[in-house]
Amino acid sequence: MSKPTIAVIIGSTRQARFGDKPARWFMEKVSDHADLAFELVDLRDFNLPIFDEVASNAYAPSASPEAQRWQEVVKGFDGYVFVLPEYNHSLPGALKNALDHDYTGWNRKPMGAVAYGSMGGARSLEHLRGIAVELQMVPLRNAVHIGGGDFFTVWSGGQDKPMSEIEDHLEVSLNAMLDELVWWTKATKAAREA
């Protein structure tokens, strides 16, 4: 039996984004995970228009072919980990737009995060968790937060050191999130299939 698959979604499309670095680190840490398979999903690979559909795809099919392609990708996963920056105390507009372009694909699946910024992306993640509840996802309690001195150590605008410089600070939260993600992925997948 194949492992449940988790999308690791890079939540920023900016050319100068930092998200690639923690995304690569996370993918290395989970490359041989015993219970889950992980696949990197980059919002840059989707040319999503600003949401302008007549309704959510819960009520009417989306007209945009790019939105339809995005919805097919979203529904193919059993859960999500968002690599999440904090822009002006919230999540990036590109991510909010991507979330709005689907409803049904997100339903009844867990979501975690690797959040970053001066405050560890905490405010951005709190906003994402509220949106996730409305999209009928299961937001995990635990997350990886890269903030403060750790963020400025690895951020390209700071010391730009490798993630290995701070990973010992992140291991406990990473393991707690992954344990929780395994449990909720198995539980929600079993319930969806029942």
Rank of each mutant, 00 (worst) to 15 (best):
Leu135Cys: 01
His145Cys: 01
Ala190Glu: 15
Ala55Asn: 10
Phe38Lys: 06
Leu84Ala: 09
Val54His: 02
Ile50Leu: 12
Asp45Thr: 01
Glu180Phe: 01
Trp155Gln: 11
Arg108Asp: 15
Ala176Lys: 10
Val83Met: 13
Ala194Glu: 14
Phe46Arg: 05
Thr13Gly: 13
Val154Glu: 05
Glu28Tyr: 00
Asn142Ala: 14
Ile131Cys: 10
Ile6Met: 11
Pro65Met: 07
Asn175Lys: 14
Ser2Leu: 10
Gly120Tyr: 03
Ala16Trp: 11
Leu174Ala: 06
Gln71Asp: 09
Ala132Cys: 03
Trp70Leu: 05
Gly121Asn: 08
Ser56Gln: 09
Gly157Glu: 13
Ala58Gly: 11
Arg108Gln: 15
Trp183Arg: 14
Val83Arg: 14
His169Ile: 00
Ser124Gly: 15
Pro65Ile: 02
Leu140Tyr: 06
Ala37Cys: 02
Val41Leu: 07
Met27Pro: 09
Ser2Met: 12
Tyr87Gln: 11
Leu170Gln: 05
Lys75Cys: 04
Gly149Asn: 09
Val182Met: 03
Pro65Phe: 10
Val144Met: 07
Arg14Ile: 03
Val114His: 06
Gly79Met: 09
Met27Phe: 02
Trp25Tyr: 06
Lys161Gly: 06
Val138Lys: 06
Gly117Glu: 08
Asp20Ser: 04
Ala16Glu: 13
Arg123His: 13
Tyr103Ser: 13
Ala190Gly: 10
Glu126Tyr: 09
Arg123Ser: 08
Lys161Gln: 15
Ala23Pro: 02
Val73Glu: 14
Ile10Pro: 08
Ser62Glu: 01
Gly147Asp: 07
Thr104Ala: 08
Gly148Glu: 09
Asn175Ala: 06
Ala37Arg: 13
Pro139Met: 04
Val138Gly: 07
Val54Leu: 09
His169Arg: 14
Leu40Met: 12
His33Ser: 03
Thr153Ser: 07
Pro110Leu: 05
Leu174Met: 02
Thr5Pro: 09
Glu86Ile: 01
Arg69Asp: 03
Ser64Arg: 08
Pro4Met: 10
His127Glu: 14
Arg192Gln: 10
Ala60Arg: 15
Glu66Leu: 00
Gly105Met: 08
Lys189Trp: 00
Val83Ser: 11
Val182Phe: 01
Leu43Asn: 09
Met137Ser: 11
Trp184Leu: 02
Arg17Gln: 09
Trp106His: 07
Ala55Gly: 04
Trp183Glu: 14
Leu84Ile: 07
Asn107Asp: 02
Arg14Cys: 05
Pro85Cys: 08
Gly105Asp: 11
His101Gly: 00
His101Met: 04
Glu165Lys: 06
Glu165Trp: 06
Thr13Met: 15
Asp52Gln: 09
Tyr80Met: 02
Glu28Lys: 11
Gly158Glu: 09
Leu140Phe: 09
Lys75Ser: 10
Lys186Cys: 00
Met137Gly: 07
Leu43Gly: 08
Pro92Thr: 08
Leu140His: 03
Ser2Val: 04
Asp20Tyr: 05
